[in-house]
């Protein structure tokens, strides 16, 4: 089982801790991520203006490259996933735009390319039972708040990822690696996204509300799937604490890091140094290391 892998701009740099652990875990559960040749940035936003074809060119080119290479294309970053999945949907459903775009990029459109998310591969192809069978480190009793954010789920008709109001794929994942999922109402609320660049005070409010809600519901750690969510929820906890001194903080891990921990991968691969809120002291206290 092989997948073409689109790392996107962030996975080999700022979000190495999402990337490396995920690729190692993939090998363990039986699939391989093969880097897509000649990839470029996806544009990091799906254009919402219907006349903006320009912004569709990079993701279309990425998809066309995957079509050429053969096989299905997966990715880890929620932003990339959203852009590629929506573009793929648009190319399937809007033949007029497809023709225009492919004329312009001078590549050939081929049917049948699927763009599954890494988690969907775990759910639909590997199976969470297989994941469970590979667990080496007992994380029993660790209460994990699964955070979805927006881009995995919305718009529902195009993403078809999970239920838009009450998704459960991350809960099932968390259970499969032996942890206890914590339901919290903010799991599908926005982290503030790119507002952390343009209106940081707004993003801080968003992040604070999400983290507070997870803590209130008894979470000990949070898992995220996206470098931008991770930034707003983990890296920005410093700013959140400046604004709300009583905020106690909570470690936020990429789902792949937690998976790697349960598979007992070495610390170099889990790379917790990159997480702003270091989870190790807590995990140690909890007796999980």
């Amino acid at each position: 089982m092989d997948y073409l892998y689109f790392p996107g701009c962030t996975l080999y740099t700022k979000a190495k801790n999402l990337d490396v652990a995920a690729r190692e875990c993939a090998k363990i559960v039986g699939f391989e991520l093969r880097e897509l040749p000649n990839w470029t940035c996806c544009g990091a936003t799906f254009p919402l203006a219907i006349d903006n074809l320009m912004a569709l060119l990079p993701p279309s080119r990425i998809l066309a490259t995957a079509m050429e290479a053969g096989g299905n294309l997966t990715t880890l970053c929620s932003v990339c996933f959203n852009v590629l999945r929506r573009t793929s949907y648009l190319l399937e459903s809007d033949l007029e735009k497809r023709e225009k775009i492919f004329d312009f990029i001078e590549m050939e459109y081929r049917d049948g390319l699927r763009v599954p998310h890494y988690l969907e591969i775990l759910r639909d192809e590997v199976g969470f039972e297989t994941v469970k069978a590979k667990v080496k480190r007992d994380l029993k009793g660790l209460r994990v708040a699964p955070y979805y954010g927006c881009l995995l789920l919305r718009p529902f008709d195009e993403m078809r990822f999970d239920d838009k109001e009450n998704p459960t794929i991350l809960e099932r994942f968390v259970e499969s690696i032996g942890c206890e999922p914590v339901d919290f109402p903010y799991k599908i609320e926005c982290c503030g996204s790119f507002q952390s660049v343009s209106a940081p005070e707004v993003a801080i409010e968003c992040g604070y509300a999400i983290l507070k809600s997870a803590l209130k519901n008894g979470a000990e750690v949070m898992v995220s799937t996206c470098p931008l969510c991770q930034f707003n929820l983990d890296t920005k906890q410093r700013e959140i604490r400046e604004e709300y001194p009583e905020f106690q903080g909570i470690p936020v891990l990429y789902f792949s890091q937690l998976m790697g921990l349960s598979f007992d991968l070495p610390m170099e691969i889990l790379d917790f140094q990159r997480n702003d809120v270091d989870p190790l002291p807590f995990l140690e206290r909890k007796g999980l290391l």
Binding site: C9, T10, C41, F194, S196, V197, P227, L228
Partner: peptide, 17 residues
């Protein structure tokens, strides 16, 4: 901020704004 922020935040922010 530049040092800590992931690229996607800048790219999407710049594209929008």
């Amino acid at each position: 901020l530049i040092d800590r922020t992931p690229q996607i935040a800048f790219i999407s922010g710049f594209r929008k704004f």
